[in-house]
């Protein structure tokens, strides 16, 4: 029992991090039908920028703030320079964002050095609780809480505010929203920046969780984010949460029970979903 709880908490924590990464990607696709393979580059830049200031000042809060700022700025640059010239052409989008991904990943090595970096959780999150036989590591609970808070905040923003209404309407029918006099490009830029900031936040939270960061995580997490978005249904916000938790839990349990398959489990889930339900687990709704 305690084993299942421990694995469950691990899986939920991983899932929440993946959700933060995938949430932006799915909205970006839903809103402007843009396939962004550079998303993992924003993730890894958030991680490195955050860890840099974290080791310099020892303040994890500052690290989170800097990561979010990095995400916002990089998101703006990416949308302006990389995405804008290739609107409406999926093949060019895939090609160009993949190239940008490689550039972002190599630039990490130039700015921060090519070696991998070890990261410890901050002191106030380093210990753990013990309830009965179950040991709960504080940092994992912290990630789960942050993930849930952000999910409900964004969910509220999407469902209850005017901005959310515009975004949801844009996901359903971009042309119609434009006809009603709303500058959808501007809305999209804002969504892209927020999505990039979420990816960067996911990166900096992931650093102490896995204990080590390296530049190649960029491409790995780009691919992971896409897998999750495909499983959840491209454009579906709620779908990305469920798919992320599914992938996180599957990874945690597989790593313990069938370690040989743990590397392949994401691919297996996606293959099964693509074969039986190619539109993803969740349909895009307004």
């Amino acid at each position: 029992m305690d084993l299942i709880v421990t694995l469950g908490v691990n899986g939920l924590a991983t899932g929440m991090l993946i959700f933060l990464l995938a949430a932006g990607l799915t909205l970006i696709f839903g809103l402007m039908s843009v396939l962004n393979f550079a998303h993992g580059g924003l993730f890894i830049w958030g991680a490195y920028a955050g860890v840099w200031i974290y080791t310099a000042t020892n303040s994890f809060i500052l690290a989170i703030i800097l990561a979010i700022l990095t995400g916002l700025v990089l998101g703006l640059v990416t949308e302006r320079l990389i995405i804008r010239p290739v609107y409406g052409n999926h093949i060019q989008q895939i090609l160009i964002t993949l190239g940008f991904m490689l550039v972002l990943q190599e630039l990490i090595k130039v700015v921060f050095g090519p070696d991998q970096k070890a990261v410890d959780p901050p002191a106030w999150l380093a210990s753990s609780f013990q309830i009965g036989d179950v040991i709960l590591i504080k940092y994992r609970l912290f990630i789960i809480i942050v993930g849930l808070l952000l999910f409900f905040t964004i969910f509220f923003l999407l469902k209850k505010t005017r901005i959310g209404l515009i975004v949801r309407a844009g996901v359903m029918n971009r042309e119609m929203v434009q006809t009603l006099g709303i500058n959808i490009r501007f809305v999209f830029m804002a969504v892209f920046m927020v999505g990039a900031a979420l990816a960067a936040l996911s990166g900096v939270l992931h650093a102490p969780y896995s204990g080590v960061i390296y530049a190649e995580m960029g491409l790995e997490f780009s691919i992971l984010a896409f897998i999750v978005v495909v499983i959840g249904g491209m454009g579906s916000f709620t779908g990305s949460l469920f798919a992320a938790l599914l992938v996180g839990l599957a990874q945690a349990f597989m790593a313990y029970y069938v370690p040989a398959l743990s590397l392949a489990v994401n691919m297996l889930i996606m293959t099964i979903v693509l074969i039986f339900r190619p539109q993803g687990l969740f349909k895009v709704k307004g």
Partner: peptide, 11 residues
């Protein structure tokens, strides 16, 4: 198009 890209990646 992106489904072929993703499934080949998965395989």
């Amino acid at each position: 198009s992106h489904f072929y890209a993703m499934l080949t990646l998965a395989f």
